[in-house]
Structures are given as structure tokens and as C-alpha cells.
Design a protein around this nucleic acid. Structure first.
Lengths: 132, 132
DNA sequence: GGTTGACCTGTTACGTTATTACCTCCATGC
DNA sequence: GCATGGAGGTAATAACGTAACAGGTCAACC
């Protein structure tokens, strides 16, 4: 864990939400680190590899892992209204899927599960969303 | 279904694999259609909406749906070695996940399930892949 | 016939996301 | 000292995606 990587993780943790690589980069460069994309992407890739952060494919964004200590099978609930992301664990789902895939001879290495929908706050009779 | 859309679907079907929007675009323009990105994206978005094609988030790519007739909950097996994509149905998984999400008050509208790993051909003692 | 409106296609221009290639720095081990 | 390898810095560019506008077609309607 190096300074850039640590700071990158802090940025993700502080924001409490998914951030694009370029948003992270901007923060990093404000803190005196490099201002070119690879700086952010390398740090983010490292964090993802270490299980300290996750990549959200549907958002082209990254978020700090909320339970980095234990090995887990994360699934994400992405609110299309307020853009908030909830991380949930779905071990049963993952195991079932692995098995299904194995029946077809496919070895699952990484599994992405992402749902888009409405979070409790936004779905509660409020279809227009609460961006705040 | 218009000529561009039909041709787009044919291109996806002919390739038997996931294609980037720009690859599709190139084929379209070879066939005398427009050569600007919106031409491909509009056709692809239409096909996805109609359930005739799917979007693969991890690949930023599109693939024809293999069973467009029935309503289904697709999950994808993406081989990291040969880039082939297998589409599979996972209704149980989807239902289980919806329930888990509902417990947390989240209304799932769209669910993405994508696995990266090794297909039977590439996992079979062949780690380097078979691009052909 | 003429008009209106919906829908589709085409194009320009631009914004966003991600990677390649190359260089420097520095800690380690010999 | 000096090779080695990991990490970070930078320039340049590739890849992906969208906004905004222009024209064309066609059915519906008066």
C-alpha cells in the first residue's frame, strides 16, 4: 500500500458513493499526485485486485468495498434515481451460478451482479428521484 | 423493424460473438449505411429494448439474443481467453436476487449477471486461449 | 392537395472513459 | 557501483458514447 493507493482508497471512502476514475483523478491531482489517467486507473485497479474496492460496470465507476476483511460475493443495487449504490452479499446466488456454469463446463473466475432500480427512498412514491 | 435495424441484427447474428458498437458501425457503413456512431448506437439500443440483443457491460459490446422469443433472464459466461460469450438462462437466480433486494426495499428493474472465466475449450488445459 | 406530427436516418461536433508507450525514481540485492 | 523490478509521472491517442440539429418519409387528417 503506497501513498497514492492509500489516498485513492480514502477518496472513495470519503465520498460514500461510486466515483468515476476521472473524478478520483481530479482529487488526487489536487492532493499533489499525478494528473494523468493512468495514475488513477492503476491505483483503482490495484484496489479492485486487492478486494478493497469494486468496479461498477454499469456506471463505469468505482466504490470502496464496505467489508474488505472477509472474502465475499458482492452484488450491487444501483438506484437509477439518486445514483446511490448499495453493496450486498449474495453467497447463495454466487454458488448457484457457479454450479450452473460448471454444468456447462465453464469455470467462473469473476462474477458481476448489478441491479438497476429504485432504492427505498426513491421508490417510496417518488419516481423523480432525490439527488441530494 | 427497418433496414438498418434488420441489418444490424444480422451482423450480430453472423458474427456469433459480442461486437463493439464501432465494429458494427464499420460493417453497416460498408453496406451503405451511415458511418457515424449514432447510427450504430440507435440501432443497437433499439434491438436491446426489443429483447433481440443484449449489451455486455464488461465488454462494452453487444450480442444477438439467442432466444428472443421468450421472456428470459439472461446471464452471460464470457471467456477471457477466446472472448466467446455464452448466454444462459438463470430464472431461479434472478428470482432469488429480486427477493433479497426486496427485503432491503429495493425494486429491481434490470439485472446484469456476467461471469468472466474460462470456457470448456479454453479451460481444458489451455490457459493461453484459442482466439480462432 | 396540403399540412401536421411522429418517427427514422444522417451528420457534425463533442464529451467521457481507458490504454499504450515511454521515462524517471527509488529500494533491493549483489 | 550497478543491475533489477516495482511504482509513479507524462504525453499521446484509442475506444466508447451522446447532444444537437437537418432532412426525409409516411400516415392521418382537414
Amino acid at each position: 500500500m503506497t501513498p497514492v493507493r492509500r489516498r485513492t482508497l480514502e477518496i472513495l471512502l470519503e465520498s460514500h458513493r461510486a466515483m468515476g476514475a476521472y473524478d478520483v483523478l481530479e482529487r488526487l491531482s489536487q492532493d499533489g499526485y499525478g494528473n494523468q489517467p493512468p495514475v488513477a486507473y492503476r491505483a483503482l485497479d490495484f484496489l479492485v485486485e486487492q478486494g478493497l474496492a469494486h468496479r461498477l460496470q454499469r456506471l463505469n465507476a468505482f466504490a470502496a468495498c464496505l467489508s474488505p476483511d472477509r472474502d465475499h460475493a458482492p452484488a450491487f443495487l444501483i438506484c437509477r434515481s439518486c445514483d446511490r449504490v448499495a453493496e450486498t452479499d449474495a453467497p447463495v446466488l454466487r454458488a448457484a451460478f457457479r454450479e450452473t456454469a460448471a454444468e456447462r463446463g465453464f469455470k467462473v473466475e469473476r462474477l458481476t451482479v448489478e441491479a438497476v432500480g429504485l432504492c427505498p427512498a426513491c421508490g417510496d412514491g417518488d419516481d423523480t428521484g432525490a439527488d441530494a
